[in-house]
Amino acid sequence: MSTKVEAPVPEPLSLERNGVELTGVSRSFGAITALEGLDLRVRPGEVMAVVGPSGCGKSTLLEIVAGLQEPDAGSARAGAGPSASSAATRRAACAYMPQRDLLLPWRDALGNAALALECQGVARAEARRRAEPLFERFGLADFERSRPAELSGGMRQRVAFLRTLLPGRPVLLLDEPFGALDAITRGSMQEWLAGALLAEPRTVLLVTHDVEEAVFLADRVAIMSARPGRIVATLHVPLPRPRRLTDARLVELRAAALEALA
């Protein structure tokens, strides 16, 4: 996928101090402790991947950062300013992309992409007008009027990305964004995302159980333990971009990450 991706927002983003910081975060559901004493820091403009076994609380971690949940103990900050620890500010600073594309089946692709802008109070027609020019850059040209049921899995995911990126929020939270795709589509989507982030850097927190995806996309990889989840190790990925999955150093890092997980 060589689709060139440019900034979907006209005004440049300020990444300054728009990082993520979790300190001593704990969260339980009934008798189950999902997270316990978790510390994680994502610097502004950095791509941080969190890998861990299934059910280790990765999604909970992301929802806390996104301001959709509050930690039982500890503090969560996202975005800039003194109020960055309030859930409302975290919600406003973060663009959250859930595991599944969750497109509305009754809206066409353009309407789905425009949804995020509508939620910010932009009128429907205006939101569609602003989303339209981006379809070509996202490799979705001529599919503006297609319903989700008519799109392939990769295209649906790109519409979901478009919806996530349009409001121009500085912190991007991705919950296994390619988990539902087949291996070939997944590979091309990973390259596409790497290109998109290169063209327009954001602070990214990417949750995945795919170690290869983590080292391919991230500046740093945090390894999470099984429940109760906490960060047990952090790996640096000091490789220049664009990266290649077959790069020997990348393969080495992947092995190191897998070892840390074991």
Binding site: R91, A92, Y96, P98, Q120
Partner: peptide, 12 residues
């Protein structure tokens, strides 16, 4: 779908 409601909440 609860996920959709979460998404809408995150979109403000």
């Amino acid at each position: 779908e609860p996920g959709l409601l979460k998404l809408m909440r995150s979109l403000g």
